[in-house]
Nucleic acid binder design. Sequence first.
RNA 1: GGGCGCAUAGCUCAGUUGGUUCAGAGCACUUGGUUUACACCCAAGGGGUCGGGGGUUCGAAUCCCUCUGCGCCCA
Length: 876
Amino acid sequence: MSLASKYDSKTTEEKWYNYWIENDFFTSIPDERESYTIVIPPPNVTGVLHMGHMLNNTIQDVLIRRARLKGYNACWVPGTDHASIATEAKVVKKLKDQGIDKNDLTREEFLQHAWDWTDEYGGIILEQLKKLGASCDWSRTKFTLDDDMSASVIKVFIDLYNKGLIYRGYRMVNWDPEAKTTLSDEEVIYEERNGHLYHLKYQLKGSEDFVSIATTRPETILGDTAICVHPDDERYTSLVGKTVIVPIVNREIPVIADPYVDMEFGTGALKITPAHDENDKIIGETHHLEVIDIFNEDATLNSFGLHYEGKDRFVVRKEISKELEDRGFLIKKEDHVHKVGTSERTNAVIEPRLSDQWFLKMDELAKPAIKAVKEDIVELLPPKFKSTYFHWMENVRDWNISRQLMWGQRIPAYYYGDGKDDFVVATSLDEAVALSRKRTNNNNLLPEDLRQENDVLDTWFSSWLWPISVFNGILEPENEEINYYYPTRDLVTGPDILFFWVARMIVAGYELRGERPFDKVYLTGLVRDKQRRKMSKSLGNSPDALNLLEEYGADGVRVGLLLSAAAGNDIMFDEDLCQQGKGFVNKMWNAFRLIKGWQVDKSLEQPQHAAQGIAWYTSRFNQVLSEIEDHYSKYRISDVLMTSYKLIYDDFCGWLLEIIKPEYQQPIDPKTLAEVIALLEDNMRLMHPFTPFITEEIWQSISNRKVEEALCINTWPEGGTSDQTVLTDFELVQEVISGIRTVRKEKQIAFKNQIELKAINNEDLDTKYNSLIQKMGNVISVEIISEQVAGAASYRVRSNEYFIPLEGNMDVAAELEKLEAELKRAKGFLIGVQKKLSNERFVGSAPEQVVAIEKKKEADTLAKIETIEASMKALK
RNA sequence: GGGCGCAUAGCUCAGUUGGUUCAGAGCACUUGGUUUACACCCAAGGGGUCGGGGGUUCGAAUCCCUCUGCGCCCA
């Protein structure tokens, strides 16, 4: 036999992945079978595989491979996302490194660079997923900027616009001064920062008196247009309606009253800068205040900044506070911790900014999506995410869908004039010309008179269509594929994009197809390191995904990742888990190696213990299979794995193989061999979703298989009934054997030394198991007796008592001590049970069944006490 | 500031409707074994006041209240 004792994952994995691909096992085309569809959460096109990807793609692969075995037409659609802001930022940086400024390029030139970048790095991540074993239908690979995908996005934009759901508004938006674009609320990360609270004084017009206000942003006084106090604040009642003078600027502004002001905070007087604060803007609107925007788009000051014009906001903050101090306007400066919005992508501090943006009305759209989750038509797993989802969806704000970027779908709005509403929305320039002519009654309008909107759409405005658009369900809503594959089954993703993406897909599903996009949303946890830190590049605590695959093999890594990955819980990733996974794969390999190595002697009959072992494992397998089905139905994937792991490690390898294993270098009988191979095959079917490579390797090594017999496209184990008597008997047998091992250890009897076993068989355990016990315990004979044996080590299994006669002197005192302890424990337990039973209220109110159990416990314990006492007497 | 969640063995976590097998699993640990399936092995063993306090109940890890400590989301 030439099989290596250590399993070599490298060559095997490549071999079988190629085999699956060559034979189109992952390719799906609609047929008469039921479909089982998963769409991948498209990773950033230029990204590389990290731990999070490995985790959620492994889960998807487990689900899809199992569906394939179960006979569904399994279809897992892969693809990538153009990730507008992230990708654009990378391209801008690369150009900068080459000395090229993005602003010197035309749109077309910049996009050419972006496509070059995409062509160079795009799709690397998909190749990495193949190494992990992902069984995606690669022929369906999509990219959110593919022509048809973009056409879908544009069509949806136009349809929603025509429905009146998309509008253009002058709103306060989150402005990233570094990327020079707006961000959606979800892309802003709030961080605690140490800053200062500046107390400033504003002189009352025509008086020597001052009003003092507190602000964290002194530079914004340049845009102040009012001072606001609470109407109930008696300190300021007399000031309302008067005029104060803004320091440095010398602008005259009114003192107004509004209940928004928090009387407790600062001085109770608030300066109002409508251009630079969301709440100030609202107050400004209520009181018809002037709006003065003091910033340029890169957050340097504009002409309203006076002598600070051209300087950065943070520089100005320092300088102006100095000037205010020098000129006597600064009363005091306190340390102050406050939350600051930062850009998820560039880390720049977000500047609230008023600008013209495109919005999608969300409140009506959200309703069916809320209902779907409420009624579990779309089920969130684990369900704890539901309340978060409702909270967000019920307070949803209109979605700012425009971005001041180039890398993405350009908004199909065309301006024909300078007025805010002088635009039409159209699929093409020609159509826009026609529409504009109609709108303006000006038939002389030419294409060159129109100017297309420069903004592109938010990336999520393409990915929210993903489950529909990958099947071309937007452009051809009744095509065969969309009708066959949609709705999809499972979506596996992280909770961090529950709102960005998941919620919006549900919205899109109902709005565009009147149907949920998927049945289940499996939310994985974040992958953290052992110290609970998030994995990040800057910490350098993220293991290189490809190195892991290299070192532990894809199967090992998959097992390692899923061992402790209950849905929704963060997983503390520890490389030791991959080691455990690798060890498990090796275990399966060696189990196979053992079986493969047996020589058959056709003349041999099947020994009784082998028949018993096979019968037991068959029942055990079926029992565990139904547990596994139950776990799967609840999407408890790590429980499925752990249950399967124990079945194979303990039951199959630890017990069955040891039972049927012939003596060293002896042949095996043909019946046992055939049966154990069939059981091994079932094990391989069961494990295939988790460890596709090793199972295929073993499967194909058991015998020569035709292409259509490959495990990858084989069937899930059918299962069957399990014989309860066999299972119960065997449990007892296992305890008996375990007892022998304990005694051997305590008495230091080496396993190679045979022993005798005598049993008082109160449980009436069938004596047909004696040969099995003999084999597993290296027992020379099992004798049923009726009296305690003196000079023997003893142990009890339920009411049965076992004796192992000891040669030579035995330590009577130690044995007595052991029995004493056992007796004490039993008596204590008995007292508890009897106390319960003597409690009339317990007997009266507990269900009959529960009382019966307690009574049985009492009887069993009494019997046990009796045997222990008898043993002690025999020893003395 | 608003919302959601968590706390069980050294670590990571199960524990579903309050009641059998309720105090469990895996890893780690300790001890012992190793005439070839596998030291990536086998066996046995120790280890927890179920975060603290109070309540409901015949009975609470489980339900309720409260305190403490953490985490996440949103503003």
